[in-house]
Design a protein around this nucleic acid. Structure first.
Length: 290
RNA sequence: GCGGGCGCUGAGCACUGGGGAGCUCAGCAGGCUGUAAACCUGCCGCCUCGCGCUGUGGUGGUUCGACUCCACCCGUCCGCA
């Protein structure tokens, strides 16, 4: 469609965002069926991990065979994976889809991942300093947040005034970035160099609540415990990947720390909490200037 | 029946003879440009939202002053019978 070389690097994009159990997957498949050459990219921070299928509600193998899917199974649970990693992978995939003349459907619940791709956050190599971050992290544990905040204020007052100084994660990241870029604000979004259509799903509360309950019950009845057992035999339980809703609860059952009924109740509870945060995020997202 | 523990805000708990509406969870709202299903913030007895009002099972007592000490009662839990 686009003759322009730069636009051809990236296909038209359809974004489907929304909370857990809001029907994103089904909508994405329906849309893909109606668009020739459509390919789906999952933007979900926990679906990138191999072996975490039931608990993260990945699309079925049948659906993956019918419609090309990307963004899944990119890392093992014990491998670090960041928003920048996701963006880089997505950019590669988008180039491929563009070359095939298709359309990309970016679907997911991880707002930052969607934003990184659909709004073009320039997450480059410079400024990502794992060693520096690890050092800051240990100082945080030893000296406390206050010391890092004081340093940030002294070293980069501009950055300090623009971030949440009560959030250790943000303070550490800010210092990490400052160590390379100095007192400069984060780069502005590049935008997406082709047409983008947004769909933010926000089901009626009672409907959504029921979907969350059904999802949790289904997962525990259809292999989540077995999946968790397999993961537990290969990895430590405290991996960040396993902070995903459902896994912690499944581990508790396997270790005899909780009954299945309690695990399901807790999973439903945490899903609701997560869904609330997603709604807050996507409400902001839908207010962005057209 | 005897002995002991416990009774306040949805749940679970602290502290205290002299300004408690304290903490955790849940709940509600919000934020988040590289850990993002992570992480963080505010609210969370009542209202006319003022730095106002009420409040620590009940009754009575001690005291200048009681959530705090004493007595009895009610409820609940544990032990002994």
């Amino acid at each position: 469609m686009a003759e322009d070389a730069s636009a051809a690097r990236v296909p038209p994009l359809i974004v489907i965002g929304g909370a857990t159990a809001s029907g994103k997957t089904r909508l994405s498949l329906e849309m893909a069926d109606g668009i020739p050459g459509a390919e789906i990219i999952s933007a979900d921070s926990r679906q990138v991990y191999r072996g975490m299928d039931v608990g993260t509600a990945k699309v079925s193998a049948a659906d993956r065979a019918r419609v090309p899917h990307h963004g899944l199974d990119l890392a093992d649970p014990d491998q670090p994976f960041t928003a920048a990693d996701f963006r880089n992978r997505a950019l590669d995939v988008l180039a491929g889809i563009a070359a095939r003349g298709g359309t990309a459907i970016l679907v997911g619940g991880t707002g930052l991942y969607i934003r990184a791709v659909a709004e073009g956050l320039p997450l480059e190599d410079a400024g990502f300093e794992p060693a520096e971050r690890a050092q800051l992290e240990s100082r945080l544990a030893g000296e406390g947040l206050h010391a890092l905040v004081a340093q940030l204020r002294a070293q980069a007052p501009g950055v300090a005034s623009s971030i949440d100084l009560a959030n250790p994660r943000r303070v550490v990241r800010a210092l990490e970035r400052v160590s390379v870029h100095g007192d400069r604000p984060p780069p502005a979004p590049l935008g997406y160099p082709n047409e983008v259509t947004w769909h933010i799903l926000d089901p009626e509360p009672a409907v959504h609540a029921r979907a969350i309950v059904e999802r949790a019950e289904w997962q525990f009845a259809n292999g989540l415990l077995e999946e968790a057992e397999a993961l537990r035999s290969r990895y430590p339980e405290d991996l960040r990947a396993f902070s995903a809703v459902g896994y912690r609860e499944a581990f508790d059952v396997l270790a005899g720390r909780a009954s299945i009924a309690d695990a399901i109740t807790r999973t439903i509870q945490r899903t609701r909490q997560y869904a609330k945060r997603q709604r807050t995020w996507f409400r902001q997202e839908s207010r962005r200037p057209a």
